[in-house]
Design a protein around this nucleic acid. Structure first.
Lengths: 361, 361
DNA sequence: ACACAACGCTAAATCGATTTAGCTGTCTGA
DNA sequence: TCAGACAGCTAAATCGATTTAGCGTTGTGT
């Protein structure tokens, strides 16, 4: 209600006056030059090489003095460049995507790009809709996180945690074999022999790759891999809508389902940290202690993993680096530097915390 | 390496051919009409009222057939509208901001807007830099989360968790008195009399408001409010850089510092969930049980709060709704519907979970 | 039979930059 | 002395839409 007297402020932002932005023309007139010259100089065009140093200085001085800011729309229209890219994530308030976006942002803004975000919630239809809208907005490319992409997009695209090999799409993927190996070795070294596994959401693009790696590695290590130790939720999830809250509930449900099938296991390798945490809760509710009775290992190392109690042993995905790599790769492709390699692989790292221990003797 | 034969795909996206987008002119020519007519019809301009229904249909049919998509840059340049807003958060991979952004996104995209995000990391300089860049990008307004805003921005702005009253800025704020009351009543009802408090980051805009509310409420309830029960970190943080990881460490450090000062308390009211979790860890490390020996109550109800073990009793901020309200308010101001009210207040909610209990007898 | 309105549409200006082709005027070299 | 090179700049087209002013044609009322 109370409001300071606004008379002191220079340009108020309500709906009152508009500050009338400084155009190129204004700068040119102020200098007695043409807009062409000013533009050439300000953009350091090679054509401006023949213009004497003194004029250069006058132009820059005037631009600074008048606080000239080139109009982004006009410039983009002419150059057919937007310096924007579209980022499609499952859901913005979800740990995995947030970590990747952090890396994306760091690199992109450093290079003078901005990004537009939208959430596809693991639905192909929603994804396609936003791809269309963002294309209309002239984004120069896409970074998609865990996106259920069906067809080759028209623009350069980098997929993080994508699994399909697709024309024009560069995948930033974890080396799943190495990652799974890390986790399994850890469990085996602790002495676990009966390990339970969660299989991920059928629409999540990492699910298949990771599952394959698990099967292979279990075989290599001679680990029992029995059906009653593997849990996948009943098939289609409720709607195609995705949320982290659901991931947690899913983990809890997984955990209960597993206990319903058998208690003959000493460790659980969850699909991700969220489901690991959900499962831990299910175990605790069932009177089992973690890690004394059951060791649990997660995947991702999202923030929660270290905050959790017991803190979570997990396979760390270098999310920030993956985001950075994705942006770097995309910008290179936009610049036409890189041929679109189908894969860039990053390595996982084992983070041992308190949710794993040797099995009871 | 291996790559499917791309001959089947229509338009490849590498750096090869460009699909040559359909312009308004193309549609007009295809119809034998002028671009003016087509534009008028497609935009349902009142000027097009005198154009017969049949022509309307022809135009729409052609647009659909040719898959015409208006060029965003051209349209924005002409209309002086970008349908974009700038969102400035402390850090994108942080729970509070993510929750608010979720709400922002939901409402904004529904209304045909997109948003550009940047992280100010609680630094005024970084904030100003991005404000400038985003203004240049012709955003139509700002939503700022926990931003250390010093001067009135030129564009319509809505601040979430802002505390300063400032010309042209609408604040979406929590009713801190009500929120604090909720928490304190809960503790008092449980029987706690000696309660410790954390004071937040000096650059975080909610810190002061919440601290004031705590002091007032403690007074109202006749609660002891002794200096040795209040902890604030040593003043300036290391650099002005902010991260959730630091919030956790801060909470841990808070907890240790508190224990160093006194153990004569039965409950802790932390500044937020992250610091609550950090403190709980410090207590556990010191051999105290939560909630048996010490009750801990957080603030925010970020995702982690419910996942944590023990799950966290906390004061829920309706982050999603705050984000929605912020966007709604901003769009209304952009449309010139609303006068810029200085405050919109939302109510908190107490979420009782497992980290609080009656004090030991 | 004629003025005037309504209809159906278009020419052209405009938004604010970028960029190519080219125009002066001076200087150089043969 | 004169062609040609070069320096130093500019006119004008262009990007793709939106939007105002207005132009011909037909119809209507008196």
């Amino acid at each position: 209600m109370s409001r300071k007297n606004p008379s002191a402020e220079p340009a108020q932002n309500g709906a009152s006056e508009k500050p009338k932005p400084v155009t190129l023309k204004a700068v040119a007139q102020h200098l007695g030059l043409s807009t062409a010259t000013v533009s050439l100089v300000l953009n350091r065009s090679p054509v401006a090489d023949s213009i004497p140093r003194e004029t250069h200085e006058r132009v820059f001085a005037a631009a600074r003095e008048l606080k000239y800011r080139p109009n982004y729309m006009a410039r983009s229209l002419r150059r057919q460049r937007s310096f924007s890219i579209g980022v499609l994530v499952p859901e913005i308030s979800e740990g995995y995507a947030a970590g990747v976006m952090h890396g994306i942002e760091a690199h992109l803004l450093r290079e003078g790009y901005f990004y537009l975000v939208a959430s596809h919630r693991l639905s192909g239809d929603i994804l396609n809709e936003y791809v269309g809208l963002l294309e209309q907005r002239s984004v120069e490319g896409f970074i998609m996180v865990a996106a259920p992409l069906e067809t080759s997009p028209l623009l350069p695209t980098v997929a993080v945690a994508g699994h399909r090999e697709m024309g024009g799409v560069t995948n930033v993927v974890l080396d799943h074999d190495q990652a799974i190996r890390l986790a399994m070795d850890h469990l085996v070294e602790l002495g676990h022999e009966r390990v339970a596994f969660f299989k991920g959401h059928p629409n999540s693009s990492d699910t298949e790759a990771r599952w394959d790696a698990i099967q292979r590695t279990a075989g290599d290590l001679g680990l029992a891999f029995r059906p009653e130790l593997c849990v996948q939720l009943s098939g289609e999830p409720s709607g195609e809508i995705f949320s982290p809250e659901e991931g947690y509930r899913e983990g809890y449900a997984f955990g209960r389902k597993l206990l319903g099938q058998t208690r003959d296991f000493t460790a659980l390798f969850a699909f991700n940290d969220i489901s690991a945490i959900g499962a831990i809760r299910a175990f605790l509710d069932a009177g089992l202690r973690v890690p004394e009775d059951v060791s649990v290992i997660g995947f991702d190392d999202i923030e929660v993993a270290s905050f959790h109690n017991p803190s979570l042993t997990t396979v760390r995905q270098p999310l920030f680096e993956m985001g950075e790599l994705a942006s770097r790769t995309l910008l290179a492709r936009i610049a036409g530097v890189d041929a679109p390699a189908p894969f860039h692989t990053v390595e996982a790292e084992l983070v041992v915390r308190d949710s794993t221990a040797p099995p009871r003797a």
